[in-house]
Simulated scan of single mutants.
Amino acid sequence: MKRKWFGLVLLGLGAFLLVAGVLATAWAPGVVKKTPLDVNQVTHLDGTVKKLDPATGELNENPVKVQSITQADSKASDDHTVVFVQTTCVVIDVDNAPDCVNGDDPRLVSASTDVFATDRVSALAVPDYAGLPEGSLPHEGLVNKWPFDATKTDYMYWDGTVGKAVPAVYDRTESVLGIDTYVYTIDIADAPIEIAEGINGTYDNHVEIYVEPKTGAIQQQTQDQQRYLDDGTQVLDLKIGFTDDQLQQFKDDAKANMQLLSTVTVWMPIVGFAGGGLCLLAGILLLLSARRTGGGGGDDQGAPREPATVSA
């Protein structure tokens, strides 16, 4: 009897593990490989900036820091599309400057707010999404991350300064603090832009974006940017990249997210199919064994009996 019950338990466990394996293969990747709706990320960059001093006509160099806050608007988002609000502040890092200052502070280089929507799977912008506030600038291409399982190919990436997507060209594979990344480069030259209200000029930028391909998360991003007036006068020279602390945080996040993906998409199917198959096989063998012994295994139903004694 014990063999029979143990066999039934193994059959049930095997069926459960096989179902878990099927779900991990067919359903779980579609759940975990989606941009979450609770993103609230603060990103810090630093470097140097040369900014035109109108009084002297010279470019003055100073250390600079950049803070970018990216928050998902869960109420405006849905199962397929996520809305982001991103604020960015570039500040000359002197006199204990805070992460952002008001418009009257001479240490302010630029400040901006951007609202956009992206597909939660492909990471591509959704320019006509109904959840965007009225008057939002339509975006195109990738905006703030790469898709899951990024490949060694070129992508279109949004540049807010020129107001359109530009080619991000796959260049090489490189490790960032032990995280393997694909490096994509963007080169913009002589792009017409508005330097300030009513003042036109041109814009050059060389960008390198280091992407962890499994999650599509950006691990490092560097910019070498210049802006010029129409007469050729340079007004800005900005060189920035993620801070050391930011790189370490993104490394830790990448390792945790890759481990989660590996658990759900690799180990759960292995345990489900292999463990489930073994449990089913063992359960069937136990049931067959119990049937051959008359359903026993723990009682005396199959034991020989002594002949009855008849009293004289």
Rank of each mutant, 00 (worst) to 15 (best):
R305T: 10
F6A: 09
D99I: 07
S74D: 05
K34G: 12
A196S: 11
P127M: 03
Y170V: 15
A254Y: 05
P138N: 06
T243K: 00
D244V: 09
I240C: 04
Q219H: 08
R227G: 06
C89T: 08
V101W: 04
V207P: 09
V94A: 08
V9Q: 04
T222P: 13
L236Q: 11
V90D: 05
T153M: 03
Q301F: 05
G178F: 01
A308V: 05
D99K: 09
Q225G: 09
T309K: 07
G131M: 01
T87N: 11
V32C: 03
Y155M: 06
V64A: 02
A303H: 03
H44Q: 14
V183L: 02
G163Y: 00
Y155V: 04
T70W: 02
T113H: 02
D300N: 12
V207A: 08
G283I: 14
L8R: 12
M258Q: 14
D99Y: 07
S122W: 01
P192A: 00
F84Q: 00
W267Q: 11
P127V: 03
T309S: 05
Q259W: 00
K255E: 13
K50S: 09
T118I: 15
K33H: 15
I195W: 07
A111T: 07
W267A: 10
H206C: 04
Y170T: 14
K214I: 15
G103T: 06
T173K: 10
T215K: 03
T222A: 04
E174C: 08
T243G: 00
V264S: 14
D73F: 03
T265F: 14
G47Q: 09
R305N: 06
F16K: 14
A125M: 06
D159N: 14
Q234G: 12
Y203P: 06
P36N: 01
A312R: 09
T151D: 04
P54D: 02
A28D: 10
P63I: 02
G21D: 02
L13V: 15
Q259P: 09
D79P: 14
P138H: 10
V271Q: 10
T161M: 11
I270K: 15
Y210T: 10
G30A: 03
K34F: 08
V32M: 02
P133A: 04
S77K: 10
K239I: 14
D154H: 00
A97S: 13
S136W: 01
